[in-house]
Nucleic acid binder design. Sequence first.
DNA 1: GCGCAATATGAGGAATGCCTCATATTTAGA
DNA 2: TCTAAATATGAGGCATTCCTCATATTGCGC
Lengths: 211, 211
Amino acid sequence: MPPRPQLKPRKRPSQARSKATVEAILVAAAQVFQRHGYVGATTDRIAERAGVSVGSLYQYFPNKDAILVALTERHINAGFALVRELLAEALNEAPPLERLLRQFVVAMIALHEQEPELHRVLFEEAPLPPSVRRQLRKRENEFATEVCAFLRAHPEARRHDAKATAYVVVHTVDALVHNFILHPPEGLGSDALTEEIVRMLLGHLTTNEAS
Amino acid sequence: MPPRPQLKPRKRPSQARSKATVEAILVAAAQVFQRHGYVGATTDRIAERAGVSVGSLYQYFPNKDAILVALTERHINAGFALVRELLAEALNEAPPLERLLRQFVVAMIALHEQEPELHRVLFEEAPLPPSVRRQLRKRENEFATEVCAFLRAHPEARRHDAKATAYVVVHTVDALVHNFILHPPEGLGSDALTEEIVRMLLGHLTTNEAS
DNA sequence: GCGCAATATGAGGAATGCCTCATATTTAGA
DNA sequence: TCTAAATATGAGGCATTCCTCATATTGCGC
């Protein structure tokens, strides 16, 4: 267990051919991580699945964890993009808070429902390096800040400690949905959960309090 | 990556000497997992730290994961016991719901604050076998059921879908506290978080609704 | 077409960690 | 005290995986 080596690619692909190779490796990695878990996902297996040689793989990724990281970052980016998109759509209509919240929860569920097993491996099983976890938290905070700004602006929202509220709102939805999709409890459907979350958050956001 | 082998000990310690050995191994394992992470925690290292030979270790644990599992189960049991204890104490006084909620959140924070790094390794990094994850979920559900029963009984609580509510309450607290302790955000203290959670849940629990 | 750079190959080196087993020591009980 | 069972030891076998490197192939610019 020597100090964790670098995570950046040693060569940047320039020709179309090599770009395709990198893409194939990432796609294959997603499949292999999904099917075999973090430990079972060997570089040999990923290369084989990608239809390239191990040597090629190591041209673009200095080690196994670099693949994990690249994959995770891509996954995170796609996730935020999707949620933002769905939210932006909803925001165009200047909707009531309840509708917006429901939209948010639904978007998060949709997000977690695609490739849930990959999601589980990446975020629950794999030893994501601290740098990546930090980055993820940073993105979450940015997102919470947006939510925060929105909350101040929305006519229905009444709370004072917008920072704490935004933190709680964003993380509550994320955590509950994450748990629900990845470890579905018996006797509780996603509709019921959505309703419950929406009611709770709506109440929380619209209750005025002399702090 | 052959099929995951058995997790049960091959020999049960009978004499006091061997009980001490097993105990030493578990204590050492906790320290080593904490300091080196799941991958860095080699059986050799654990044995060394425990002051016993690898051979002895393998007398009582068939493989590395068996140690992880034993440790996790112990951790889980201690956790539930602690929270139950703190809650039972609070319940003796037939307190108002708000007080009880606050007690719950405080207990969960206390729980997560002891050995947070071990907690992180066990639940975020280590590949816990599905059986253990299932067991954990089962315990959580049992706990949620208790909460559920209590909710029905408490005079201040007004909600109808007690099952969904219990699920949301328990998992919200757990997830938020877990995240907060293990990945502390800047500019948000534990008091503010506690307040925020308590207000949110209290509002949720005391709001009556024609479902 | 030519030559050079980019890319691809895959057998095998090197390192590591899990776990065994033949042997030694300790304890319990008669 | 003596014996058998319980417990402890730790060097090293075995398997596995990561990654390299010498070589081959492909594509780009001229």
